[in-house]
């Protein structure tokens, strides 16, 4: 029996979540693991936007921050955290829909600059409106505990473990949805636009609408990831919406391979976990990271996952050809 792509993604992601829990020796590892899953979720949104449709956004940290700050702020006015998270996602979706139409007419680096401006704007508001957001110092986030949530369904875990499982589950769900989307009518239209928007339009695809839809979907991914980070960390600063974070999200997607959710996971894993490992090398940390990125882009332009998958496929084909040759001779 062959498994559908959605099912396969679910099994791979779920297995990795479980594997992490089996090998992690301490709460520190669980915290890093949680970050990996949160970043994977945000980068999965980039897979939809950048990998499927081929649009570059340098402002997605802005949507990430909207999700994070909605989850931080609304509970102070008596809104439950779950609802606040949804409100953040809805707010990000609304902003993406409003701003998407005019700026998605742009392409290539014009679009990159326009989204960069959008991200900067959001970051500026969060930094300057100190009465609301606490300014550059950030704010604490209270009102929700993953540990209590899991306890209410009869599972007792340490706080760090509870967040790991919760974020792993949401990232798995996000990956499955993105893979489903890629196999659907809308997904085929997205990937068609990536390769030729003129041809896509000639087949009846409303290109402007499709781009806008992908922008909204990726904004929701970023907002949910932001909300999870705010809750898991218990505090949030405007840097979550900063330019560097936007660049990180794009870099993770491109490093792993923007066209697949597995690429999102690998990119997020490397750029989240590696700095933790490299702290041993202290001042060389950024040099090593930079070298890895430059090397990947030179040797494997499509990203790590597609390059390795291609290598495997070629070796398998070579082995098959070898067997065939032996049988013939």
């Amino acid at each position: 029996m062959t498994l559908g792509p959605g099912t396969r993604t679910f099994l791979v992601f779920a297995a990795l979540v479980v594997l992490g829990a089996l090998v992690f020796p301490s709460s520190f590892f669980y915290r890093v693991g949680t970050l990996v899953w949160i970043n994977t979720l945000a980068v999965t949104g980039m897979v939809v936007l950048l990998g499927y449709v081929g649009l570059v956004s340098l402002g997605h940290a802005g949507f990430f921050a909207i999700g994070a700050y909605a989850t931080a702020l609304l509970p102070q006015y008596g809104v439950p955290s779950g609802l606040a998270m949804l409100a953040g996602a809805a707010g990000a979706a609304l902003l993406a829909a409003l701003i998407g139409r005019p700026i998605l007419k742009l392409s290539g680096y014009y679009l990159a600059i326009a989204t960069l401006g959008l991200g900067m704007l959001i970051w500026m508001v969060l930094s300057k409106e100190a009465w609301l957001t606490g300014g550059p110092d950030g704010m604490t986030v209270t009102g929700f505990s993953a540990r209590n949530l899991l306890k209410s369904v009869g599972i007792t875990l340490k706080t760090a473990e509870a967040w790991y499982w919760l974020c792993g589950a949401v990232a798995t769900l996000g990956a499955v949805l993105a893979v489903n989307l890629g196999q659907s009518s809308a997904g085929r239209a997205f990937r068609a636009i990536h390769d030729s928007d003129v041809a896509a339009a000639s087949l009846g695809v409303d290109v402007a609408r499709a781009k806008s839809a992908a922008f909204v979907i990726s904004a929701v991914y970023a907002a949910v990831a932001g909300a999870l980070l705010a809750l898991a960390n218990g505090y949030i600063t405007p840097d979550a919406g900063g330019f560097m974070h936007s660049v990180e999200l794009v870099t993770m997607a491109v490093l792993g391979g923007a066209a697949s959710v597995y690429g999102a996971l690998v990119g997020a894993l490397i750029l989240t976990a590696l700095p933790q490992v490299l702290t041993v090398f202290a001042e060389y940390e950024h040099m090593v990271l930079g070298a890895i990125m430059v090397g990947t882009m030179i040797a494997m332009r499509r990203g790590l996952v597609p390059a390795l998958a291609g290598l495997l496929a070629r070796r398998r084909a070579a082995r098959r050809a070898g067997r065939l040759a032996r049988r013939v001779s």
Partner: peptide, 14 residues
């Protein structure tokens, strides 16, 4: 594409 009617959400949730 034009004969396909399922919406975005139907696609996302498979």
């Amino acid at each position: 594409h034009m004969a396909e009617r399922a919406g975005l959400l139907a696609g996302l949730f498979g």
